[in-house]
Amino acid sequence: MKILCLIRQVPDAEAKVKAANGKVDLEGATMALDGMDEYGVEQALRINEGGANTVAVALGNARFEDAIRRALAMGLERAVHIETDLLLDVVSQAQILKGIVLEETPDLVFVGGQHADTDSQALGAALAEALGWNQVTWTTELTFDHGTAKATHDTDDGKESLELSLPAVITTQQGLNEPRYPTLPNIMKAKKKEIRKTSPDQYGIVNSKVKIVSQEIQERARLNKLIDGKDPVAAAEQLVKLLHEEAKVI
C-alpha cells in the first residue's frame, strides 16, 4: 500500500524556547523532526518494509529540510516539500495537503498526534475532512486485513478499538511503536533521495485565516526550596510544615 507521512521540523523538546518582543525566536534553537511524527514514519516502514511507496510530506520553511532528511534517513523513499515561510492555519494546511494527497493517491496518511510547536492536534482530522476520509486519532495499535484497518486509540476516559476501510488518516503517538535511529549508511543514502519542491500558492493558498497577535513566555517563578533527605523523618516533617503553613495547600 502507498503511505504518506506528514512531518514537521520543531524546536527540540529539550531546547530552551526564547521569546522577544512578543514573538518566539527560533534563531539558534536546535530543531528536530517532531517526535510525534517519528511514530508515523516508523509505522510506514514496518508496513512497507524497505520503504517502497512511502513518501514524507512537509509543509514549512527551508529549515524543514533537516526533518525531511531525517525521515528519509529512517527509510522513507522520497519527499515532497511545500516550502513556505507563512505560518498557516490548520484549515489552509489541510487544503494544501489535500492537493498533495490527490496527486500522490496514498491509501494511508500518518500525521503526528500533536505538533510540538503549535501544540495543535487538528491537522489529521482537518485533512481527513478535506478528503472526505475517516480518521483515527491518538492511535496506539494498527493492523490491516484485506484493505480494512483495525486500530486502537485513546479516548477521554479510556480506549476504543475501531474497524475502518482505507483510505484513511491515522494520527500517531507514543506507544504505537519504537521509532528506529537512522544508520550511517542510510543517512548517506538519504542525501541522494528525491525531494520534490512546491509551494502553497500552487494549491490556491496565499495567506492564513488565523493571525498570531503575540507569543509570550509566562514562567511562574518557583521557590526551589530543597530539603536534604538524609534524615527522612525530619525532612518529611519540614515539608509538611511548609506545605501547610507557607504554601497553605494541605
Binding site: 524546536p11 524556547v17 510540538a116 501544540d119 498570531i212 503575540s214 507569543q215 509570550e216
Partner: peptide, 13 residues
C-alpha cells in the same frame, strides 16, 4: 498554549 505549553500565544480570526 504552544511549544509544549512553554509559550502563551494570542491568536485572532
Amino acid at each position: 498554549y504552544a511549544y509544549l505549553a512553554r509559550v502563551t500565544e494570542t491568536l485572532e480570526a
